[in-house]
Design a protein around this nucleic acid. Structure first.
Length: 802
RNA sequence: GCGAGUAUGCUGGAAUUGGCAGACAGGCAUGUUUGAGGGGCAUGUGCGUUAAAACGCGUAUGGGUUCAAGUCCCAUUACUCGCACCA
């Protein structure tokens, strides 16, 4: 048969479209199963081969699950707000919605060409007013429940581009686009009280089945640490608080370090003697990102705050205060106690600034480096130089010191979280407008819910403002409105929402995509229950997932979703790298366009290759040679059709491998082991190829198992044998008893080295195996003394000799 | 810096989770089929000594546990990803 992949693939894609094969019906009696892939940002570059990898993987799972009798929901949509579309639109003087429309068309066409079994009837874009109406509505719920507030936050600002920059775009302190030095600018921003949910987001992980590394990512992002907040008096009046997880070292304090960007230094300023030096350091710090600041080697910078001394609350010792940029103004209390003998960063700081050190935990010399907690904890180390606590173990002292300070009323046991509130404002045009109105008389007022959606204005020209406000601020007809409270003159909020907003709840919308009464009905959400399987990139496992969980937990708390955690399993896939093992990028010239591959080799070849290329959770480089190998595999499967004879059922000889392969493929597709699923199918095809002829049923089985990965060619071959379409058939069942060999080969080892293999019946008794093993290596045992023999049932026989 | 991950032939990777390292592919080589090939078939291919049998070595590096280690433990190195306005 001639393999015209273009014709075959089009034919089956049309078949699925016409029959609506993949339409998921809410309320169907079959068991629901919700498979989700991250919906893409439809960039101008078109679909990436990396998209193809994860979409194919989940497509294979979806197709198998359907055959297994589940009501599968496998939806697709578009996450289309964002800076690139806005930049493109500004440059080309068009409205971003038109650019987005074009891009979506391209992406959708590419997805159709690849034969993904998405339920297109549920498609939407986050930029559709019908969708963002509900994103805005949900923001209003946050606001009405006290979860949204305004705060002043410093942002990276490029004076040339007149644009707020991400840390990434401001890397190294210069604007990535134009090279101008970035400055920090204070801006009033909408915030969501995500930090209120720290503990719930941590606990909620127990009700999910996320991959371990995903859970770890969430846990570390939340960054819980348990410790003590301690009040510190300032000589001559005033006080501040510090947070520490190592209160046991409190007698070792020789100085305090406070954040240059914190509120404390501002308060102290009138009493500071070296104002000029202090101000200079504060200004230098303002240029650095927090990442640059916490780097260990840069942590030694700082300056002394002259004229102000603090008092160690446990022993009354007066110690100096320093500014240090490794202390962050927005984490903990913005001030730390410094114990150079027991913290390496404090140690280096003390050396640099020539400060005193006091060792308070015994166990190691501290002249050259600090004796830190990971070295002294749990080793029975005892305190020294610590008044009544001297002699106690670290663990006992931690408790005793805390207890004493808490009783004195100068300390509190607290949990600190690294996770901060969510900065929800963006000074951009292309995002969901925040539905808030500012009135001189009434302050911030939420829009009336019935007036939603608040549409973006339909203009093609918008320039950034001089002062860093959103481009929307220039569109006066849009900005000026009336106060929903008093009816007087008022202005709209001109900032828009971050890209993360729309993607924080899209999976709920898919459950009920066209509901115009609510964002999704409770009934529909209860029916689908939750996302059973969510796949996305590793780069999203910390933030997107956390934002989405936060959003859902909030909706749950106000009674709008049925579960506190709406995502059950989350897995992440590796990137497809260029053939030179580097990330694909235009500038490196190593980009592979899936369209070209589909045209030349066909979608099925590309799909098989991307499943076969390696461990799905790891990065894998592109190889066109390897791709060709997958084409050859398809050719082989096609050729096997000529071997189909008149027989029926499974032959005795092929039966074991057939049952094993069904089991293996079924297992592998549900555990992301796609590469071994393909390899086991290759093995099956090879063993068919070794036969003179195979039965129709055997061939049909191979096609069925391969169908989830290569759906077009398998349907075509299957049809030519006269079977009904695979997509309307059921998944084959394996017989466990037929997957087990009755006779097995096991190795015989001498001192751990394999010297022979013996054939034994499955589950043989040890003495039978022993006899066989001994006779097999008899010549090697001569003149040796047997010290020990180990038999691991059905695995190995090892003889230890001297 | 902090957090996470990875390291196995010439290449991508496999290894039932402590039990025969290199499955399945790619590449290369040799042979074969036909006028031809991004074709089919066959054989070989971790490294070393060797005609071969056989033996020795071998899963980033250095130690350790064990009858047995790619797999477990300790230390080290290199690379990749995330770090809050890229999506």
């Amino acid at each position: 048969m001639e393999y015209n992949h273009k014709k075959i693939e089009k034919k089956w894609q049309n078949y699925w479209d016409e029959k609506q094969t993949f339409k998921a019906v809410t309320g169907d009696k079959k068991e629901p199963y919700y498979i989700l892939v991250e919906f893409p940002y439809p960039s101008g570059a078109g679909l990436h081969v990396g998209h193809v990898r994860s979409y194919t993987a989940q497509d294979a799972l979806a197709r198998m699950k359907r055959m297994q009798g589940y009501n599968v929901l496998y939806p697709m949509g578009w996450d289309a707000f964002g800076a690139p579309a806005e930049q493109y639109a500004i440059k080309n003087h068009i409205h971003p919605k038109d650019a987005v429309k074009e891009n979506i068309k391209t992406f959708k066409g590419q997805m159709k060409d690849l034969g993904f079994s998405f339920d297109w009837s549920r498609e939407f874009s986050t930029t559709d007013p019908e969708y963002y109406k509900w994103t805005q509505w949900q923001f209003l719920q946050f606001y009405k429940h006290g979860m949204a507030y305004k705060d002043t936050i410093p942002v990276n600002w490029c004076p040339t581009c007149k644009s707020v920059l991400s840390n990434e775009d401001a890397a190294g302190g210069v604007c990535e686009r134009c090279g101008t030095e970035v400055v920090q600018k204070e801006k009033s921003q909408w915030m969501l009280r995500m930090s209120d949910y720290s503990e719930d987001l941590l606990k909620g992980l127990d009700d999910t089945n996320f991959a371990d590394r995903v859970k770890l990512g969430q846990i570390n992002w939340i960054g819980k640490s348990t410790g003590v907040e301690l009040d510190v008096e300032i000589v001559g009046g005033g006080k501040f608080s510090i947070f520490t997880t190592c209160i046991e070292t409190v007698y070792g304090i020789t100085f305090f370090v406070i954040a240059p960007d914190g509120k404390l230094i501002k308060e102290l300023m009138p009493r500071v003697k070296n104002k000029e030096e202090v101000n200079k350091y504060i200004n230098e710090t303002a240029k650095k990102s927090s990442m640059d600041r916490t780097e260990l080697n840069k942590g030694k910078t700082g300056c002394k705050v002259e004229g102000i001394m603090a008092i160690n609350p446990v022993n009354g010792m007066e110690v100096p205060i320093f500014l240090g940029d490794f202390v962050l103004g927005d984490y903990g209390t913005g001030a730390v106690m410094a114990v150079p003998s027991h913290d390496q960063r404090d140690f280096e700081y003390a050396v640099e600034h020539n400060l005193e050190m006091i060792q308070v935990i015994d166990g190691r010399d501290t002249t050259d480096s600090a004796f830190e907690k990971h070295d002294y904890l749990g080793k029975g180390c005892k305190l020294i130089n610590s008044e009544e606590f001297t002699g106690l173990t670290v663990e006992d002292a931690k408790e005793a010191i805390t207890e004493k300070l808490v009783n004195k009323g100068i300390a509190r046991r607290v949990n600190n979280y690294k996770m901060r509130d969510w900065i929800f404002s963006r000074q951009r045009f292309w995002g969901e407008p925040i539905p808030m109105i500012y009135c001189e008389k009434c302050g911030w007022q939420p829009m009336d819910e019935k007036d939603l959606p608040l549409l973006l204005p339909d203009v093609a020209e918008y320039e950034p403002t001089e002062d860093g406000e959103s481009p929307l601020a220039n569109i006066k007809t849009w900005v000026n409105t009336t106060c929903p409270h008093c009816g007087g003159k008022a202005k709209r909020e001109t900032d828009t929402m971050p890209n993360w907003a729309g993607s924080s709840w899209y999976f709920l919308r898919f459950m009920d995509a066209h509901n115009d009464k609510e964002f999704a009905s409770m009934d529909a959400m209860k029916y689908w229950n939750r996302v059973d399987w969510y796949n996305g990139g590793m780069e999203h496992t910390a933030r997107h997932l956390l934002y989405a969980r936060f959003w859902v937990q909030f909706l749950y708390n106000i009674g709008l979703v049925p579960k506190k955690e709406m995502i059950w399993t989350r897995v992440s896939h590796g990137m497809v790298l260029g053939s030179n093992n580097e990330k694909m990028s235009k500038s490196k010239g190593n980009v592979i366009n899936p369209d070209d591959i589909v045209k030349e080799f066909g979608a099925d070849t590309l799909r098989i290759y991307e499943m076969f290329m390696g461990d799905y959770t790891q990065d894998a480089p592109w190889s066109t040679d390897s791709l060709k190998g997958c084409k050859r595999f398809i050719d082989k499967v096609i050729r096997l059709k000529d071997k189909v004879g008149s027989g029926e059922g499974y032959s005795k000889k092929l039966e074991p491998i057939i049952h094993k392969t069904i089991k293996k493929v079924e297992n592998d597709l549900s555990t992301m082991a796609y590469n071994t699923a393909v390899s086991s199918l290759m093995i099956l095809a090879n063993s068919f190829d070794d036969e003179k002829s195979i039965t129709k049923d055997e061939y049909h089985l191979l096609l069925t198992l391969l169908n989830p990965i290569a759906p077009h060619i398998t349907e075509e071959l299957n049809e030519s044998l006269g079977f009904k379409p695979i997509c309307e058939s059921s998944w084959p069942k394996y017989d466990e008893s037929k997957t087990i060999d009755s006779e097995i080969e096991i190795p015989v080892q001498l001192n751990g080295k394999v010297k022979a293999t013996i054939k034994i019946a499955l589950d043989s008794e040890e003495n039978i195996v022993k006899e066989k093993a001994h006779s097999e290596v008899a010549n090697l045992l001569e003149g040796k003394t047997i010290v020990k023999e180990i038999y691991v049932k059905n695995k190995i026989y090892n003889i230890v000799v001297k």
